[in-house]
């Protein structure tokens, strides 16, 4: 009998990892598996199964207590393959995995990037107008240089290595725009006209 789901919907789409690899020859070593959650990114993301270690089945298998499995995988996330294989165990119960048929594997593997271009982010930005005015007045009162007041941008630090802050005198590839000086050309702002103050 097919399941009739009631209640709130979920973002997950697929099966648990054990449901997939438990049915495959040699536990599916060498096959590709994807997490549907990672499909939101334009770049390709998938796991290549390297080694499988089955774990004990729960005594009563329910929707809240699914069988887990310890799998060593080569992870490719957003087009970049990790240098070291990772283990999936604590997340293996999530019904979010999908097996890639062998004839479609090339769609994923061919899009792996050898090296990512690192974005160079802007180092400094303009102060907010009023704040800049106050600071300039303060500096003037102190007898310091009032020109060239720039605010150093504090970026959120991540380990993904997709971006870095520009060095002194380096030209950034990405500009930071906190203000509404220039609206992006999207349909949301189609009828908005900025008055030039």
């Amino acid at each position: 009998m097919p399941y009739k789901y009631i209640g709130r919907t979920t973002n997950y789409k697929g099966k648990t990892l054990w449901e997939i690899i438990g049915n495959l020859k040699n536990f599916g070593v060498g096959r590709l598996v994807i997490r549907s959650t990672f499909e939101r990114y334009p770049e390709t993301s998938f796991f290549k199964i390297l080694k499988v270690e089955p774990l004990a089945c729960p005594e009563v298998q329910t929707m809240d207590d699914q069988r887990k499995v310890r799998v060593l995988v080569e992870k490719t996330f957003r087009g970049i393959t990790y240098p070291k294989p990772i283990t999936i165990e604590s997340t293996s119960y999530k019904a979010d995995y999908q097996l890639i048929p062998k004839d479609e594997e090339h769609k994923y593997t061919s899009k792996v990037e050898a090296k990512r271009d690192i974005k160079i982010l802007q180092r400094t930005m303009e102060f907010p107008p009023l704040m800049k005015d106050v600071l300039m007045r303060e500096n003037k009162a102190k007898g310091e240089d009032v020109h060239d007041l720039k605010l150093e941008i504090i970026y959120h630090k991540t380990k993904t290595g997709k971006y870095r802050v520009a060095e002194e005198g380096e030209t950034p590839t990405v500009t930071f725009q906190p203000n509404m000086q220039e609206l992006p050309k999207i349909s949301l702002y189609k009828n908005v006209k900025l008055s030039s103050v």
Partner: peptide
């Protein structure tokens, strides 16, 4: 998707700017 991206962009920019100002 368009609106979502724009909201994310605005929020990210706002947080980055606020963090920078606060640190300064």
């Amino acid at each position: 998707e368009e609106e979502d991206n724009e909201l994310k962009r605005l929020n990210n920019n706002y947080r980055t700017a606020m963090n920078s100002i606060r640190r300064y």
